[in-house]
């Protein structure tokens, strides 16, 4: 039960983040909002890291540099999120984002990208994506 509540809270925070970034962008600009929120988030995460023990930094050397660079995508992600919310609203943005997120994951699995175990696309995955796309048409109509 607690796990479910945390998952719900996590989802709410993800959507809230997009709305807050959009609100801040309206006042000071989008790149400004992305820079500011990630700077403060970084400082807080760094403080938590110091408290829980920072020794694991060295483990970064064991990870491929490409994988370490994933964080930089957030600049484009936040910019796209905010621009999309301004144009099409939160519900449609989140829906399209989830379709692309799940669809891309399926594509990466099917091709075995980035060391993922290669597996055939399943009927359920196709039906699921199809349902999500129909849902978007209902939303818009």
């Amino acid at each position: 039960m607690k796990g479910i509540l945390f998952a719900i809270l996590g989802g709410a925070c993800i959507t809230l983040q997009g709305i807050a970034n959009t609100r801040i962008s309206g006042s000071i600009g989008t790149w400004q909002a992305a820079t500011l929120t990630q700077f403060t988030g970084f400082i807080v995460a760094l403080i938590i890291l110091m408290c829980v023990g920072a020794g694991k930094w060295r483990e970064f050397q064991q990870v491929k540099p490409l994988y370490l660079a994933g964080g930089s995508f957030a600049a484009i992600i936040i910019f796209s999120n905010v621009t999309a919310i301004q144009q099409i609203g939160v519900t449609l943005m989140v829906s399209m984002l989830l379709i692309a997120q799940l669809g891309m994951t399926v594509i990466m699995e099917t091709n075995g990208f980035f060391g993922l175990k290669k597996q055939k696309i399943s009927g359920a995955q196709l039906i699921g994506i199809g349902m999500m796309i129909s849902g978007v048409f209902l939303l818009k109509g």
């Binding site: 992600i77 796209s80 999120n81 301004q86 449609l92 989140v94 692309a100 997120q101």
Partner: peptide, 29 residues
């Protein structure tokens, strides 16, 4: 707006895989 949402979602999925590889070694924080 739709194109920006799709781009964000694609990047989120790639980033999630990259981050999980870092996470396996270095831990959450």
């Amino acid at each position: 707006g739709i194109l920006f949402s799709l781009m964000a979602g694609s990047l989120v999925s790639i980033q999630a895989i990259f981050n999980s590889k870092v996470n396996e070694r270095a831990g959450t924080w």
